[in-house]
């Protein structure tokens, strides 16, 4: 109930913002201000999360730093969540959002997406000997997933009749799976392998990988110059291998040879 209200409120907020369209920051405004406000998450490993000193780190935080440096402006990191990252961008609270976000046609009605700067594999995982070898064999087993994420969208599309339990974030979904509340866990491979690393006696086995899920920078509607600049930035850093190295550093594997662009 509470979740529905939250979801509805965000939808209304974003729609409202779409109607009002406050003046969006264009590239020139950011350069004039000498500061760029970038929304990153603080609760999505390994994209944006807190280190031992509770400073924000992660792949997205690194990319945000690279963008500010390339523009020659100061960086202001704004913490967003998976739920409010689009509303923040649409209401001009931030100039860009770098929040492990996958591009979908629905989201693209509200914001623009840059070419992808990184990617992760998402899929369905389960314990050893779960007796499930593909999504088709799930039956009435319950699947834990973080709400509104690309894996949630993908899982819902592939198995509409499955018994899906949606949680706030990956950590909560992981807890639900590990504590036995749910039988299976749909997530990113990096999360599954981290959990396996921590508890090697209870490894998470991949049941079915959904797809390779690219992550995009979100750019507000009505800022073509900014979008073009971000695309150039991504293109340049894909070509020189910097983004591939960064992906390897945080996700364990480099980007593939023919990494798609938008």
């Amino acid at each position: 109930m509470f979740k529905q209200i939250t979801g509805l409120a965000f939808a209304v907020a974003t729609a409202l913002a779409g109607f009002m369209t406050p003046a969006q920051a264009e590239l020139k405004d950011i350069l004039d201000a000498g500061k760029i406000r970038i929304g990153v998450t603080a609760d999505v490993q390994p994209f944006g999360f807190l280190d031992e000193n509770n400073e924000k780190i992660g792949l997205d935080v690194d990319v945000a730093g690279m963008i500010a440096e390339a523009m020659g402006v100061d960086l202001e990191l704004v913490t967003v969540t998976s739920a409010n990252r689009i509303s923040y961008l649409a209401t001009n609270r931030i100039d860009l959002t770098i929040a492990a976000m996958g591009a979908t046609p629905e989201r693209a009605l509200q914001i623009n997406f840059s070419s992808p700067y990184s990617a992760l594999s998402i899929g369905l995982f389960g314990p050893e000997g779960s007796g499930v070898d593909s999504l088709a064999e799930v039956g009435d087993k319950s699947i834990a997933v973080a709400r509104g994420t690309t894996q949630d969208i993908e899982l819902t599309a592939r198995a509409p009749d499955a018994n899906i339990s949606r949680y706030d974030d990956d950590a909560t979904a992981a807890s639900a799976y590990l504590s036995g509340q749910d039988d299976l866990f749909a997530t990113a491979n990096i999360i599954a392998s981290s959990l396996t690393q921590r508890d090697p006696d209870n490894p998470l086995k991949p049941i079915e990988m959904f797809r390779y899920s690219p992550a995009h920078v979100g750019v507000p509607k009505g800022s073509p110059e900014l979008l073009q600049w971000v695309n150039t930035f991504v293109f340049y850093n894909i070509n020189n291998g910097v983004l591939s190295d960064l992906t390897e550093k945080w996700l364990g594997t480099p980007l593939p040879e023919n990494f798609p662009s938008l």
Binding site: Q45, V80, D169
Partner: peptide, 21 residues
């Protein structure tokens, strides 16, 4: 929900860093 970091939200962020709810 509006991004204000108080006690619960901070706990949420730590939970996602440690996976130790």
């Amino acid at each position: 929900v509006i991004g204000f970091v108080e006690l619960t939200r901070a706990g949420n962020m730590l939970n996602n860093a440690t996976f130790a709810p």
